[in-house]
Amino acid sequence: MRINEHPVLGGYPKGEAVAFTFDGARLSGYAGEPVAMALKAAGVFIHRYTRKNHSPRGIFCAIGRCTDCVMIVNGRPNVRTCITPLAADMDVRTQYGMGAKHAAL
């Protein structure tokens, strides 16, 4: 999913490669890029399931406006992953309804 070389932009300035976890699995991304981009590059597309219908949601606007991409980041729910910079050892989890899986209604 990563673009290595772009005909107009060339390369992309990136932070250092860091490891983080997604639902406990170890993934890697670049420090400072949005968490959602690191997930996308790693092939993760479901960020959360809705509370009533348990239907999947992913990235929609990618600029922090729509809140479709919220997840549990470092234990905190409802974090807009498209505008939250990735940091080393971040704990990112799929959100179910308003929180973690066991709390889903």
Binding site: M1, R2, K40, H47, R57, G58, I59, F60, C61
Partner: peptide, 23 residues
């Protein structure tokens, strides 16, 4: 239309042109 993979055109631009990730 709420399925992951339905995105705004702006989102596509943000992903590929700012972050170097194909939508």
């Amino acid at each position: 239309w709420t399925l992951p993979g339905v995105i705004g055109a702006g989102a596509a631009q943000t992903m590929m042109n700012l972050h170097g990730v194909r939508p």
